[in-house]
């Protein structure tokens, strides 16, 4: 309630955008029920200028989360359904010859949107995948020798169905690294599921959702998130965690320096979303599984069944300075 009062008393400048973020989080919470942690992570991922990979079974609200994010934050949204016959041109666009002008005209593909949902990204061939991944990395695409900048902010939410094995092309580790976070949504709890069943249609709700932010406000928020204070003990903590991933006998390949940077950026954004005065150990722990999980290669003989468990084990074995 305090937050709202801030919004009312200080409707301008930095605090206004700050309040918009809280509002966005609140709104998302009404659409996707009981997933406050994941929503905070998704927002943090966005604020840290990272891309998001959601890995879960169908029907758990992956698409809904992406759409809601776009809607709430006022971003242009396109969805690309990845299939095995998807071509790079289907993503980035093609040049079409116009008879009337006698010239080629570029028809931008769906990638020229601020938020893209790449659905079932592992269904497409590596060639199509790499077209998207290149755009994610470079924030630009090259078509017919012309380099075209992508809109800013540019945010990719890719989904992947871990149960699908046949006819898929799982993303290699090097490309997984392009995603700042990998999330799992998981089933809602009983209470939330009941509300989902008896409540209003989510799709209709989405229609009613008002944008609380503009792309410009989002850029300002991203800048603020990067400036969150990070204390020395927290730097030590990050280093200790990274060292532990490299030395743990359960992990073959630990976090790279890029992984450490991702961890810090995500933690800062998370601290910003959570209104912390600086990065707290809780922020690191909150983002750790999402940022480190897909970057670690577990050892063959490890007893931890999932990346999340492995990450929890790492967290449990490093003292917080």
């Amino acid at each position: 309630m305090q937050r709202r009062s801030t919004l009312e008393t200080l409707p301008i400048g930095k605090d206004a955008t700050r309040a918009a973020l809280d509002k966005a989080r609140e709104t998302l919470g009404t659409i996707i029920l009981g997933k406050d942690g994941q929503i905070a992570l998704a927002l943090a991922c966005l604020l840290a200028r990272g891309h998001l990979l959601i890995e879960d079974l169908p029907g758990l609200g992956k698409t809904m989360l992406a759409q809601a994010l776009a809607r709430v934050l006022g971003l242009s949204f396109r969805r690309i359904q990845f299939t095995s016959d998807l071509l790079p041109a289907d993503i980035v666009g093609v040049s079409v010859f116009r008879q009337e002008t006698g010239q080629f005209e570029f028809q931008p593909g769906p990638v020229f949107s601020q938020l893209i949902l790449a659905d079932e990204v592992n269904r497409a061939t590596p060639k199509a995948q790499s077209a998207l991944l290149e755009a994610m990395e470079e924030y630009q695409v090259s078509v017919d020798g012309n380099t075209r900048l992508l809109p800013d902010p540019f945010f990719v939410v890719a989904t992947q169905n871990p149960a699908d094995q046949i006819g898929t092309f799982p993303l290699p580790e090097s490309q997984l690294d392009r995603f700042l976070m990998r999330l799992e949504l998981g089933y809602p709890n009983e209470e939330n599921e009941r509300e989902l069943i008896i409540g209003e249609d989510r799709r209709a709700m989405l229609e009613d959702v008002e944008s609380v932010a503009t792309p410009e406000a989002l850029q300002a928020l991203q800048k603020s998130a990067a400036n969150v204070h990070m204390s020395d003990p927290l730097v030590d903590y990050v280093q200790a965690l990274v060292r532990q991933t490299r030395e743990s006998p359960d992990i073959d390949i630990g976090l790279s320096p890029r992984g450490a940077l991702a961890l810090v950026a995500a933690a800062k954004a998370h601290a910003f979303v959570e209104h912390h005065s600086g990065v707290y150990p809780d922020d690191i722990q909150a983002v750790f599984a999402a940022t480190a999980g897909h970057r670690l290669k577990p050892a063959g003989n490890t007893t931890y069944r999932s990346a999340a468990e492995l990450c929890q084990h790492v967290l449990d074995s490093v003292a917080i300075p």
């Binding site: 707290y280 150990p281 809780d282 722990q285 449990d316 074995s317 490093v318 003292a319 917080i320």
Partner: peptide, 9 residues
């Protein structure tokens, strides 16, 4: 205080 336990926990 357990190893890796944050103040909040």
């Amino acid at each position: 205080l357990r190893t890796g336990e944050t103040p909040v926990v």
